[in-house]
Amino acid sequence: MVERRPLLTAFTHLVLILGVIVVAFPLYLTFVASTQTSQAIVQTPMPLLPGDQLVENYTAALTGTGGGAGAKTPVGRMMVVSLISALIISLGKIAISLLSAFAIVYFRFPYRMFFFWMIFITLMLPVEVRIGPTYKVVADLGMLDTYAGLTIPLIASATATFLFRQFFLTVPEELLEAARMDGAGPIRFFKDVLLPLSATSIAALFVIQFIYGWNQYLWPLLVTTNENMYPVVIGIKRMISGGDSEMQWNIVMATAMLAMVPPALVVILMQKWFVKGLVDTEK
């Protein structure tokens, strides 16, 4: 700060605290609702302090014994599906992107620029604009209701490739020369030098892609019809499609909490890399 202005400082904190409250209020309310009985929630106004049903509601949600319209599948199972999908998407993307970025930066081969542009174009079009035909491909390959169908089409994007390409270009050229002097071939150089140096980028990308994978909605909505393959985000949506009044809001909200906790933890615990990765990827 340039000069001392105690009043302005106080005002600063006031604005920020207000911001935090507004941002956090939906979360707080969700938590409160997830600790109430469903009767307590429907009587307006609902209590604004946590109730005593925490264990009951979460157990009911996790095991799918809550009853109600769509709450038959255990959320525990859905979370496993979400976790596996998010891991396949994030790790798969990182793996194929590392390899292709390595090829593009460190080799000269025919049609290199053609492939470069081919990958580059995919940056532009999110899966949402080509859902119909993509769905058909997945259906024709018999990948509906499989992890492959849930994940591989979402791996087909270039963000990670570009992040790694950018990063590789900043790796000093002399390191490659030194490695060649030391007798390291391409695979060895990749494994011993490039990969360890990319650790931070990989961590950052992992956070971003894990959240991307966990939070997918439209795609799983299309390719999963079997309740056993619902990710948790879809599960919530199925629970609330019953209608306003007959909904078991307490179970829905417990499920919502469960759906938010893993990605939120990843973001907060890996905040340092996440923030760096986010700002670097896009700039």
């Binding site: 941002v23 309310l29 929630i41 939070n215 879809i234 939120a264 907060i268």
Partner: peptide, 27 residues
Amino acid sequence: RTLLIWPYAVAPAVAGVLWLFMFAPSV
């Protein structure tokens, strides 16, 4: 920063449900 960045982790579908819950006409 920590308190302000976590909504990034919330799935859009869940965000929709959260706000729906706050503004649902009956509850």
